[in-house]
Amino acid sequence: MECDRCGADAVMHAAYSGAHLCEEHFRESLERRVRRRVRRDDLVPKDASPANPQTWVIGLSGGKDSIVLTQVLSETFAEDPRIELVCLTIHEGIEGYRDRSLEACLDLTETLDLRHEVVSYEDEFGVRMDDVVEDDPENMAACAYCGVFRRDVLSRYAEAFDADLLLTGHNLDDEAQSALMNFLEGDVSQMAKHFEASLGPLSERRAQEEFVPRAKPLRDVPEKEVALYAHLRDLPAHISECPHSSEAYRGEIQRLLYGLEENHPGTRHSILSGYEELARLATDRYHGDDHAELRECVECGSTTTQERCRKCSLLESIRAV
């Protein structure tokens, strides 16, 4: 089969657009979608300049998504003195798995000559996920602990680096799954939070002084295409799954979406675009509901709605074992 644009051998078919693309045109297409998302989300503010550069922290895990995001952003802004990229890798204390993905991260940031910081749960909190999973004091999935710790580390370091933006490698499949999960759970206030935290264009989000804003520039790109891009460019993406991964509900939604996408190409795009519109509307309804209750955690001082933040209560349970 031939590329629609040049007649060379196609390497992929995007059923949602009908396109068949060769390697060169597929690469261009993915890079264009990432840059378009950066523009649409107003990620580069008008007052950014070489004298007032923006610091963007990329959460770099070493998996395909964050590796591709880092590669594309690095090439996009290599010659742009307004944007400074810093990569942040977190070692959760998952032996073997994270050791190897950390090597992929180091390999990439060395090649791209990017600033790269590595932090660990062990140094930050005195815990390792391998032990947390073993003890499991709250009887929860591993990802439930890990997600709380990861968000804490990412936010704190983004703040410590004086970041203007925190970027993660969530792709279209990830975001369409989250959107559908929030919808099926009937959680409209969560949709509003999603919009304010990472989904909405920066110019439309209400300022949240407490948090570094987040963005997901890969969210227009299906997961499969992210993997294909990493494969074609031979990027050093680490290819094994976390041994503790156990998001059963997300897995169920993922299978559902594969089936829908197969029978109705474009479903993931339309779910996310409708969800963004609903989430934007929900921010009007829910604005201020949580805001007034924000306070400082008595243990660590981070912003929370409780007396003690979720991270500190989890750490307390873990240490009590």
Binding site: M12, A15, E223, K224, A227, H231, L257, E262
Partner: peptide, 19 residues
């Protein structure tokens, strides 16, 4: 397997799944 969860390679090169 769904074409959205895999890549098909022929002689090491990816191919469109509708080929």
């Amino acid at each position: 397997l769904s074409p959205h969860e895999v890549s098909v390679l022929v002689d090491g090169r990816p191919v469109p799944e509708d080929a």
